[in-house]
Amino acid sequence: MVAKKRLLAGLASLTVMGIALAGCGPSTNNSSNTPKDEKVTITYMHRLPDKKGMTLVNDIVAKWNKDNPNIQVKATKFDGAAQDMIKKLATDVKAGAAPDLAQVGYAELPEVFSQGLLQDVTEEAAKYKDHFAEGPFSMMQIGGKAYGLPQDTGPLTYFYNAKEFEKLGITVPKTADELIATAKKTAAQGKYIMTFQPDEGMMTMSGASGASGAWYKT
């Protein structure tokens, strides 16, 4: 969906379940088609934490704006849940008032895509492919097209009870095939090797990222 303000393409984060729609339109990017003397302002909505001791978004933006007087960024922090932010983005898109960039999580990218909130930025994203690990970069793609760039990544960990694993005669699986085989062996003994909560996409997300796989085909 294209609103009056060019719209959204998504950035994402493994650590924050809301990371970014990254959107660029001809009037809001730093491409070769933009005259050097043209001044533009890029709006960015995010949910990144801004507590004491952290690197603040506003500080990063201030440095960028100082170094790039013709390309100014205006950042807005959304204080609310990821789903509430998506609702706001959907409303803003329809009203033609959406930000150029916004933050959503890897797990939310399919939802905002399905709602028609993203702009295809395949050509622009390809220029930065070598700057990112293959897994996170591929998770910004749906149907072979890119809708943003990863904003950051972080580790996901799997905690387990070593004594219980020993009782069940299993070891920690290291591959998808081992996970399936171990899960079957565990289930046969009336136990579960892990749980998948309805509101938590971390397991699916980490598996897709590790395999450098796409979310789904359209």
Rank of each mutant, 00 (worst) to 15 (best):
M1P: 10
A3E: 06
A3G: 05
A3D: 08
K4T: 01
K5Y: 07
G10W: 08
L11N: 09
S13M: 03
S13H: 07
L14M: 09
V16S: 02
I19G: 04
L21V: 05
G23A: 06
C24G: 11
N29G: 10
N30S: 07
P35D: 07
K36G: 04
D37I: 01
K39C: 04
M45W: 05
R47Y: 01
P49T: 10
V57R: 09
N58P: 00
N58E: 15
A62D: 10
K63M: 12
N65K: 14
P69T: 09
N70Q: 14
N70E: 14
Q72P: 00
K74Y: 09
F78W: 06
D79K: 02
G80M: 07
A82L: 06
Q83F: 05
Q83C: 03
Q83M: 11
Q83T: 11
D84P: 01
I86F: 05
K88V: 13
L89H: 13
A90G: 09
T91S: 14
D92V: 04
V93H: 07
K94W: 01
K94F: 03
A97H: 13
A97V: 06
P99L: 07
D100M: 04
Q103G: 01
Y106N: 02
V112S: 05
F113P: 10
G116S: 04
G116P: 11
V121K: 08
V121R: 09
V121P: 12
E124R: 04
Y128T: 09
D130I: 01
D130P: 11
E134C: 00
G135L: 02
G135M: 03
S138F: 00
M140S: 06
K145R: 14
G148M: 15
G148C: 15
L149D: 10
L149H: 13
P150F: 06
G154R: 13
P155A: 15
P155L: 09
L156C: 12
F159M: 12
F159P: 11
F159R: 10
N161L: 11
N161M: 06
F165Y: 12
F165S: 13
I170K: 00
K174W: 00
D177V: 03
E178L: 00
I180K: 11
T182G: 08
A183Q: 08
A183V: 02
K184E: 15
A187E: 11
G190Y: 00
K191C: 08
I193S: 12
M194W: 15
P198T: 15
E200V: 14
S206Q: 14
S209E: 11
G213F: 03
A214F: 09
W215N: 05
Y216S: 14
K217Q: 15
